[in-house]
Design a protein around this nucleic acid. Structure first.
Lengths: 200, 200
DNA sequence: GTAACGGATTAACATAGGTTAAGGACAAAT
DNA sequence: ATTTGTCCTTAACCTATGTTAATCCGTTAC
């Protein structure tokens, strides 16, 4: 029996040492799902049971609060993981929305299929560990930015680190990711006065 | 051979299913270290090689930026883990300070002693995974607060979730954790006007 | 005891970012 | 071609929080 999705397997192998015969146990459980721009993979209140890998397209994670204000938590593109991670771990319904920003295609698997493998082979524990560590780093970095950098600095960092996304995204989404309003972002990008650093 | 630190072993067992014979392999590598109030377990620029468990006392993690401003990232007390986590993972020098807020005692182990065990028994991968997942949840929760809640709301959440810490900590440290100045915190706690929600 | 120091509070002022509203550009729908 | 809707920008005004500085209090050092 062959590897059916060599591209996904290669992506997984980059994270953890999953041998082919283990991979085949998961591979059979994968299903393809397609999303049109604007459709949601995860909506708040839904039980959060599936994880996925993005094959093509782009997704946005965001919180919505009681007043309807949203804050964008992350973007995920090709080869990246799609899951309401904290909610999966806690088996809680999601408070997060995961929305396709472009027409997209993903491979999904029920999360319990993965956790069921934990006891059979250390490679699955390793995969879980590496993914959790990756996620941790992203969150920590962002926490530090939110705590210490002004909106202008966060904008500059974003433009430097993710020029690809900056080009693909409407500015209001970028503003939401930076934790500011579109109006505030317009002020930052306006040509006239340049303000750079939060004062000391 | 007996378990030498049953209390620590019990704490570990709560996280992952580490059998006694595996635990003994790590236990022999633990060393006790003591810190007086104000001393640092980790300082910026140091290579980050050790992880530890707090036996008694209290520690504070904080970033320092170029202008010397600090932002407190987390507190860790008895039974909790002490490590510059992202820096350990990346084998980078720490950008974080970990400072004892009270006279404290910890058990340390070189991080490589732990990673060396990963290949020998799945329980260590599991432990690593569970710890990373735990850390992830903490960061994600805080990111959401910073993104969506006003300083007043963050203060109220902190007082509700960690009344124990609120009682033990000077207010300037709490302010630093909330991402505001001591002056701003004083305003929030001032008796007169009560302001609660960020407007919609 | 007194001096020195660090933390907390308050006031006065400065500024970043939010809110509202209006207008313009562009795309999709009719 | 007109309409509609969405996004972007700009302006005017408002509020939360930062900054600086003065004062007070409690602790530690002398």
């Amino acid at each position: 029996m062959l590897i059916r999705y060599p591209e996904i397997y290669a992506a997984i192998k980059r994270l953890a040492d999953v041998p082919p015969e283990q991979w085949r146990r998961l591979e059979g459980r994968l299903s393809v799902r397609r999303f049109k721009k604007g459709e949601c993979f995860i909506e708040p209140g839904q039980p959060s049971l599936e994880a996925a890998i993005v094959m093509s397209g782009l997704f946005r994670f965001y919180y919505t609060d009681l007043d309807g204000r949203e804050a964008t938590k992350a973007f995920r593109g090709k080869g990246e993981l799609l899951a309401a991670y904290a909610e999966l771990l806690d088996k809680r319904p999601s408070r997060t929305t995961v929305e396709a920003l472009e027409d997209s295609e993903i491979m999904t698997v029920r999360y319990e299929r993965v956790t069921a493998l934990y006891k059979d082979h250390a490679c699955w524990q390793e995969l879980g560990r590496v993914i959790a560590e990756d996620h941790y780093r992203q969150r920590e970095r962002r926490e530090q930015e939110l705590l210490m950098d002004s909106a202008t600095e966060r904008y500059q960092t974003f433009m430097k680190d993710r020029p690809d996304l900056a080009a693909r995204l409407p500015k209001k989404i970028i503003a939401s990711y930076l934790g500011i309003t579109p109006v505030a972002l317009s002020r930052i990008t306006a040509p006239t006065r340049t303000k750079t650093k939060r004062s000391a």
